[in-house]
Amino acid sequence: MSESQKTIEIEVLRYNPETDQAPHLQVFQVPFADDMSVLQGAQYIKDHLDGSLSFRWSCRMAICGSCGMMVNGEPHLSCQTFLRDYYPARVRIEALSHFPIERDLVINMEGFIDKLESIQPYIIPKEKRSLAQGEYLQTPEQLNAYEQFSSCINCMLCYAACPQFGLNADFVGPAAMALLHRYNMDSRDGAAEERMELVAAEEGVFNCTAVGYCSEVCPKQVDPANAVNINKTNAAKDYFLRFLSPKGGSK
């Protein structure tokens, strides 16, 4: 095929903490084919040009959430971003914005995991049910109320799209809030009030200034901005009504 002669330049943000003071760009020439993903481009570099390049990847089909990168300054899953959309111009790939870089394209995601763990991402049943009683009934409409928010693959593109997270790493942020909302909206769950403490906290939803880019870049149409902003309203209600309600909302 004549295409095997075509090449594309991929510029990679490199960083090796053992030798580099700061990240720097390095350009590679990679054979181009029109069905080649950015991830395949990076794999080509690793296999043929520089074995020391580090990046995360696994499923190749946009479901495991590993391979998020900045591609020409925008957060993308590199497995479903294609070089043909940039060819013949040079493509620049960098580690996801707003996260510390461990090495090359590998970010430190420990903070994200802490947030995920902090939101109580599991069913706290409204009514206990034994296995012998079978499944909880949940109509397609009830499923629909949270299904979109359960589609988050934790790829963190939304964090790379959120300047408020970049400016304040304590902000719970879009994906974790979407997941929190997913459990609040589940007809089987009864712990929305417990989760309110975090929603309404200084680390919570009010860090968001409705930039909305998180939802633009989400590869799974989760619309995390929506989850965050619905919870602003919920938190505001809780703030003003806590004195009226006998249960008093959260602390």
Binding site: Y15, P17, E18, A22, P23, G73, E74, S97, H98, P100, I101, E102, N108, P163, G166, L167, V211, G212, Y213, E216
Partner: peptide, 21 residues
Amino acid sequence: RRPYVRPMDGWWKKNPYFVEY
């Protein structure tokens, strides 16, 4: 390990979406 934190200076100039924002 020495995780590198990139500065946020001028972030709003780096993406048309942020410029509009």
